Amino acid sequence: MRIGDYVERTANRGVFGNPMSQSTKDSALTASRAFFRDLQEWEWIPRRFDSGRALETPRSIRAPLGPNPRVIADEVHDGTAASPDAGIASVMTVTNLLPLLGVASSRAGRSCPC
């Protein structure tokens, strides 16, 4: 599928003819599945096929759409990263707030009862 395949507009904006991205193809198939499922559910057309199976996104399109993992810095993950405009709130971490809430942290020498 390419951008502008089923369009009558002849204005060329530089993107017509380029291949569609994998997520755009997946979105088009998802919308088509929902359209035919609704038509069959509302009994506007007879149930002759299962739109979920007939219009399933192929594995070749789904595979690149998986999660895009990235490394998160330890400071950000721990919640200790300070932003320049956060002020005093940037010093407060979950570990520092636990005693104020009456909860003993495992770092204070107490073990978790669970």
Rank of each mutant, 00 (worst) to 15 (best):
Leu55Asp: 03
Trp42Lys: 15
Arg59Tyr: 04
Leu100Pro: 00
Gly17Ser: 04
Leu39Ser: 00
Ala104Val: 07
Glu8Cys: 03
Thr10Asp: 03
Lys25Ala: 04
Glu43Tyr: 02
Val71Trp: 11
Val94Gly: 09
Ile61Lys: 04
Ala104Asp: 05
Arg47His: 11
Pro99Ser: 04
Gly79Arg: 11
Val7Ser: 13
Glu56Ala: 15
Glu8Lys: 14
Glu41Gly: 14
Pro69Ile: 06
Ser60Phe: 07
Ser105Thr: 07
Leu98Asn: 01
Tyr6Thr: 08
Gly102Arg: 12
Thr95Tyr: 06
Gly17Leu: 06
Gln40Asn: 02
Phe36Arg: 05
Leu101Val: 06
Ser51Thr: 02
Gln22Thr: 00
Ser83Ile: 00
Arg37Ile: 01
Trp42Ala: 13
Pro46Ile: 05
Asp5Phe: 05
Val91Lys: 15
Asp78Gln: 14
Ala28Gln: 12
Thr30His: 07
Pro69Thr: 08
Asp26Glu: 12
Gly87Ile: 09
Ala86Leu: 04
Phe49Glu: 01
Thr30Leu: 07
Leu101Asp: 03
Pro67Phe: 09
Met20Trp: 02
Gly4Asp: 02
Glu75Thr: 12
Ile3Ala: 02
Thr57Tyr: 02
His77Tyr: 13
Cys112Ile: 08
Asn68Ile: 07
Leu100Asn: 11
Met20His: 04
Ala73Asp: 14
Ile3Val: 14
Val94Phe: 10
Gly87Tyr: 08
Ser90Asn: 10
Leu100Thr: 05
Pro69Trp: 07
Asp26Lys: 15
Arg47Gln: 11
Trp44Gln: 10
Ser106Glu: 09
Leu29Tyr: 12
Leu97Gly: 02
Asp74Pro: 13
Ile3Pro: 00
Thr95Pro: 00
Leu29Phe: 13
